[in-house]
């Protein structure tokens, strides 16, 4: 399965070869505005679904990035702290935050797929 899943807090997660990649959605970056600071978790950090995993700050405000599922950090995107604007430029690509193990794969089923997320966004904007 390599399709994107989404949380209500606007994180995305993509499973790729037994590991999940996590970031914030394009909508999230557009709402935050110019991103000036990113803190990614270190390898080995235990994450709980819905728990704090990373930090993103724009000129306007600081926000937490939450873990979409339970697992352990495999790798933080070490390029981000030096180039936080990458999140604005490519939130769902090069602007990924961290990779994690799938501690409880069934948690993915509770997340939104693209169509459900699009509908969720449409409701938010309405």
């Amino acid at each position: 399965m390599s399709q994107l899943r989404f949380t209500k807090d606007h994180e995305w997660i993509r499973v790729d070869g037994g590991v999940a990649v996590v970031g914030i959605t394009d909508y999230a970056q557009s709402q935050l505005g110019d991103i000036v600071f990113v803190e990614v978790p270190a390898k080995g950090k235990a994450l709980k679904a819905g728990g704090e995993a990373a930090v993103v700050e724009s000129v306007k405000a600081a926000s937490e990035v939450y873990a979409p599922i339970t697992g352990e950090v495999v790798e933080g995107n070490v390029a981000l702290p030096d180039a936080p604007e990458t999140v604005n430029q490519d939130a769902q690509g090069a602007g990924w935050f961290f990779k994690m193990t799938l501690g409880s794969p069934s948690e993915l089923d509770g997340l939104m797929d693209q169509a459900a997320y699009d509908k969720y966004l449409a409701e938010l904007k309405a």
């Binding site: 505005g33 110019d34 000036v36 724009s58 000129v59 306007k60």
Partner: peptide, 12 residues
Amino acid sequence: PVQFPMGVLKEH
């Protein structure tokens, strides 16, 4: 208005 389409950073 808190920001215009240009965004806070560029406006600054």
